[in-house]
């Protein structure tokens, strides 16, 4: 290279400017951790029953099922898609479990029926969105009605209640001392999704698609296949959540898990996942799940009505999201 425009001196561009510690301190997760500590301390002062291991253990059931789905939903939203049918998938998967039970299936078969139904529902969403290229918000609003509708047709105002005793372990069992099976599943799911999203090339592709799907396709990524897999994963996690919830309640009604999809999306967004896709981390979703669990439990102990809880969570969501942006905006102007 001889032209003056490109000097032969090799310029040294450093790999990174900030250490991982600095990035950690300035992260969204750090903000969530502060909020979590505040909520936790406030609750400890507000009620004498809060700091009791068995009570806290009970409280984890507030968020474990939702969080399992939220991890998969986070990946889906990072990739620029969304699945609003998750709660309806639970209803249909739970109904399938009831059908299997009525047909005389044993516990492993009942569990398999629930999970398989979840995966099948995910595949339906995936075919419409990834295969036919339809907008996911439209497709999953449609399947949200469709899946629950099928459940209503099968059950009407009836309910399945005679589940075998051995099924109860999934939603009520404890693996060790105060640690429930659901809590174990939550931890395992968090680790699995952390690895999948942050440590594999599949996870990297998810970010690339969420930031710029066209450029990702131009870079040779199999965009359609990855989107399809993400819907399958969300269906799978909804199926697993359906098994836990059905086991915990010991019954199936078509109205099971109504409105849960919005709580899950709230959890994901509170966790720092950009609703427009492209960024977000699993750790944030874990912290958001813990915060929401703490708030629900704490308010429950204080006999605060459910509607006030919703108002508080709504305000929390808006302020956690809005305050950093408003501050950034203000500093930019100044």
């Amino acid at each position: 290279m001889t032209s003056p425009a490109s000097p032969s001196v090799t310029r040294n561009v450093p790999d990174r400017l900030q250490s991982s510690f600095t990035r950690g301190v300035r992260s969204w997760e750090m903000l969530l951790l502060v909020v979590l500590v505040l909520v936790f301390s406030a609750n400890s002062f507000a009620s004498p029953y809060f700091l009791n291991v068995w009570n806290l253990s009970d409280a984890t059931f507030n968020f474990t099922e939702k969080a399992m789905i939220a991890f998969a939903m986070a990946m889906l939203i990072i990739a620029g898609e969304i699945d609003l049918s998750v709660a309806s998938i639970i209803a249909l998967a739970s109904t399938a479990m009831g059908l299997a039970m009525t047909a005389g299936a044993d516990t492993p078969m009942i569990v398999a029926a629930g999970i398989a139904t979840g995966v099948a529902c995910g595949a339906v969403n995936g075919v419409f969105v990834a295969g036919f290229g339809l907008p996911s918000i439209v497709v999953t609003i449609g399947t949200m009605s469709l899946f629950r509708g099928i459940s209503f047709i099968i059950l009407g105002d009836q309910a399945y209640t005679n589940y075998p005793k051995s099924l109860a372990f999934f939603g009520q069992g404890y693996v060790y001392w105060v640690f429930s099976f659901e809590l174990l599943l939550f931890v395992l799911a968090a680790i699995a999704f952390y690895i999948l999203l942050h440590r594999t090339s599949f996870g990297r592709s998810v970010y690339a698609i969420g930031n710029n799907a066209t450029a990702a396709q131009f870079a040779g990524l199999r965009v359609v296949r990855i989107r399809f897999i993400l819907f399958l994963l969300t269906g799978l996690m909804s199926g697993i959540a359906a098994v836990c919830l059905t086991s915990r309640l010991g019954s199936t009604r078509p109205s099971i898990a109504t409105g849960m999809e919005l709580e899950i999306v709230t959890m994901v967004v509170l966790g720092g996942v950009n609703i427009l896709g492209g960024s977000g981390r699993i750790l944030g979703v874990v912290l958001a799940a813990l915060i929401m669990g703490c708030v629900t439990f704490g308010f429950g102990l204080l006999n605060v009505p459910g509607i006030v809880m919703s108002i508080f969570l709504g305000l929390l969501l808006i302020s956690v999201i809005a305050i950093p942006r408003l501050l950034a905006h203000k500093f930019k102007r100044a």
Binding site: D15, S201, R204, S205, Y207, A208, N211, N212, T214, A215, A216, F218, A219, G220, L221, G278, S279
Partner: peptide, 19 residues
């Protein structure tokens, strides 16, 4: 639109087709 994945760091852009 088709070349760079804006919002992602340089090194991840470079490695994208070579993952």
């Amino acid at each position: 639109r088709q070349g760079a994945v804006k919002g992602m760091p340089i090194f991840q852009n470079v490695s994208l087709p070579s993952l």
